[in-house]
Write a protein that binds this DNA or RNA. Sequence first.
RNA 1: GGUGCUAUCGUCUAGUGGCCUAGGACAACGGCCUCUCACGCCGUAAACCCCGGUUCGAGUCCGGGUAGCACUACCA
Length: 520
Amino acid sequence: MNQKVRVRFAPSPTGALHIGGVRTALYNYLFARQHGGDMLLRIEDTDSTRFVPGAEQYIIEALDWLGIEIDEGICLSAPNGKGEHGPYRQSERREIYHRYVQQLLDSGHAYYAFDTPEALEQKRKEIANFQYDARTRGEMDNSLTRPMQEVKERIAQGEKYVVRFKIEPGEEVVVHDLIRGDVSIMSDILDDKVLYKSADDLPTYHLANIVDDHLMEVTHVIRGEEWLPSAPLHVLLYRAFGWTDTMPQFAHLPLLLKPDGNGKLSKRDGDRLGFPVFPLEFHNQKEGTVSRGYREDGYFPEAVINFLALLGWHNTGDQELYTMQELIDQFSLERVSKAGAKFDYEKGKWFNHQYLIRRSDDELATLFRPIALQHLNDLNIADTPAAQHALEQLPQIVGLLKERVNFVSELWEQADFFFVAPTQFDPKSVQKRWKEDSSQRMQELLALLEKEDDWTAEHLDSIVMPWIAENDYGVGNVMNAFRVCLVGAARGPHIWAITDILGKEETIARTRQSLNYLSK
RNA sequence: GGUGCUAUCGUCUAGUGGCCUAGGACAACGGCCUCUCACGCCGUAAACCCCGGUUCGAGUCCGGGUAGCACUACCA
């Protein structure tokens, strides 16, 4: 009797969704889809002090852009959650948590504690490595050390308190991890974690997480490695609740590391090294900052997915390019690597390039058009005949140049000369390609071309090449000079591809104009 | 400090005891192609953290080091 697979992605709305979080969401999604299971999205907003407005909306928009579909919980089509196990925002589940906190209190697995944050800090200062546990709770201010009557009164009077999990020492706790195997620790090293705080009437992550995963019938918890140390605590909680039979399986994913040096990838690394660490641009109202996003930087969502999928997972073969469906078919937790992966931004660009060149010319032209128009407007040349003419030929232009860019936006610096005749010439190119006899050759070439009505690449080639050969001018000598006239530099596609798009009139006019300038 | 996790080219990784003279990809470099620049193709350089052990045989198994990372909050 195989239970239906149910996984969840449970981010906190404390800011933009980090790219590492995106990968966690992706792996959860791939796993769910492969097993015909459900992907849930739950918002873990149990820290009222770190809440950032807009973060939740950002998260669901980001997942939607990437094609990570949510079956249950908070999603774009159901901002307040859909499914039988709601609410899906932890701040809306207070009554539920009350019930379970009480259960732990009643069964003796938890107790009230009144120690103020200040008192605890003081304690930590006094005693090195202070830990609130079996060794120390006897001398702290809690329901284990105070008479029941006093505890009741203080709570009734509104004194702030927390509920702590009572951890029994001397026990070996084993967590079976799907990626790492058995991980065991002694319960002694665990502290009596706070499960609930009366100050904001909210549980902490640990309690909410266990209760929700249980109630939502989550079968597999796939999360970042930073959770591995607290996994034993979670196992203990399942035990305390008597839910060991239905405890989910755990899989702790390796971390995404800084491209240089060590440590996990942070927002600062992106700023420092010049790449986004967030899927979408994010305007943080709380901090008044704007963070770059992959979408706004010109990435295709499928490239980001592909890139991220391979940062920590790899199949046995040499395949590098995967569609979402292929990932769903081939993904497996067993093949997720154990070690952290440095974030290789350069390879990310390559992935985008791969997806870009696979897009049709028409599609790319549609994406490029607004960018081209923006440049034309900035240069104030949108209405020129040359620009209009180039705009009409956008698919051809894009098709000619897409091999040489990683992003649609980079197309402009490759295609600019199609829209406007060179106004300045690259000195290096001129020095190398514009020779003593270039003016003379261009005059002759112009005379030759002006006579031609058949402006196809094949035809022009068939009359110009023999002419060069007969006069022994040298193909490179003529063509490179011609290129400098048309482009203003030694770059660009094949010369007849350029004349083809420019058309006869523009080619002649432009060459004459450049010739004039370069002959001076 | 404590606990845990991890360890193959600069980077992502393949490798599950003999197919390893360690494979692929990104990046780098060189060449070819060629009217330029790209693309493409071909090639070069580049790694098993160290020390023991097991074994006929170890990148692969075991132990110990070392190093890196994570956690160590009334944050998630």
